[in-house]
């Protein structure tokens, strides 16, 4: 965006005058004002995100006692550990399956809400957002009580139907299912609200034209809705993938990585190693491992979004 006209001939004034006027001009520029207004946030991000990020890179290059530079030695060590590859596998299962289900449920629920008459839609939107607005540390505690190994409310209810007890957090497969379920419950409303906003921006004329052409329900979704929502689906998926890969609270509270490490993901295992095991460099290495993977995914998805944006 260019917000001031370029004036190549305006260089004849004296030096101090030119300095003052250029400062005044700079201050008057919209981009300068915008920069100054975002400066506090930029400083905040630099302090709370960039500095810790670079510091953790520094930590990841040190030995266990943090007295010696070992380069990529910590990563070499991790690559030889079976538990590390178990954590990589689980993080991928956790993130990919949670994001797929969140997207699917969000998409379906967004359609339902979109079809509710405008008058009653607001309260449905509000209610459906509740899981997303409750701090996950709190809502997961409620889930923990529902899944409690000895006093599970779910098992109590299922017992009336002669089912169970199900080891929600005591068996590897059930524990994986439980942490993914809670993540989907927490994250699906975000997808729903994003998809709903996107659905509302699809022009009705397209559907009317499709109806005239005799398109059925599936064809309308496949040829109109999905292409029109492509960008928002891509960005939401990327955002959710990053957040889900970096999840900590749900797994930590529900299973703490157990049983037998079968629900550990990068963040919980990094905490176990770094803080509980006092091996901070190795913990930092674990938490940094996903950065290149997510960065590559982000580049591809955002490049695609840009391309489609330019085509539009």
């Amino acid at each position: 965006m260019v917000d001031v006209a370029f004036q190549p001939n305006n260089v004849s004034a004296t030096q101090p005058m030119r300095k003052r006027s250029s400062l005044q001009k700079a201050l008057k520029r919209k981009s300068t004002a915008a920069f100054l207004m975002t400066l506090p946030l930029i400083i905040l991000i630099a302090l709370l995100v960039l500095y810790p990020a670079f510091y953790s890179i520094h930590l990841a290059t040190l030995n266990k006692s943090m007295q010696r530079f070992v380069g990529l030695g910590n990563f070499e060590f991790l690559f030889k550990r079976d538990t590390f590859w178990l954590v990589v596998k689980q993080s991928c299962i956790f993130a990919v399956s949670a994001v797929v289900f969140k997207a699917l449920i969000g998409f379906i629920v967004a359609h339902f809400v979109h079809n509710i008459p405008a008058k009653g839609q607001r309260k449905w939107r509000g209610m459906l957002l509740v899981p997303w607005v409750i701090p996950p540390a709190m809502s997961t505690l409620a889930w923990l009580w529902l899944f409690d190994p000895s006093y599970s409310a779910f098992n109590y209810t299922l017992s009336f139907f002669g089912i169970g007890p199900i080891p929600w957090t005591g068996d590897a497969d059930w524990a994986r299912f439980s942490v993914i379920l809670v993540n989907v419950w927490y994250g699906a409303p975000f997808f729903m609200i994003m998809y709903l906003a996107s659905l509302k921006s699809v022009p009705d004329q397209l559907y009317e034209a499709a109806a005239i052409d005799g398109a059925n329900w599936w064809q309308r979704i496949w040829y109109i809705t999905l292409p029109m929502m492509r960008n928002i689906i891509a960005i939401t998926t990327l955002f959710s993938l990053i957040v889900t890969f970096a999840n900590f609270d749900i797994v930590r509270i529900l299973t703490a990585g157990g049983p037998l490490d079968h629900t550990h993901i990068f963040a919980t295992w990094a905490f176990r190693i770094g803080i509980e095991g006092s091996d901070i460099p190795l913990g930092a290495s674990v938490s940094l491992f996903m950065v290149p993977i997510l960065a590559v995914a982000a580049i591809f998805i955002l490049r695609d979004v840009n391309k489609r944006g330019n085509e539009a």
């Binding site: 190994p149 000895s150 006093y151 007890p165 080891p167 929600w168 957090t169 005591g170 068996d171 524990a175 299973t255 703490a256 157990g258 049983p259 037998l260």
Partner: peptide, 14 residues
Amino acid sequence: PPDVAAWDDASNNK
């Protein structure tokens, strides 16, 4: 108890 694999520090107290 069959669920001891999932016990934390609060489970035995309870």
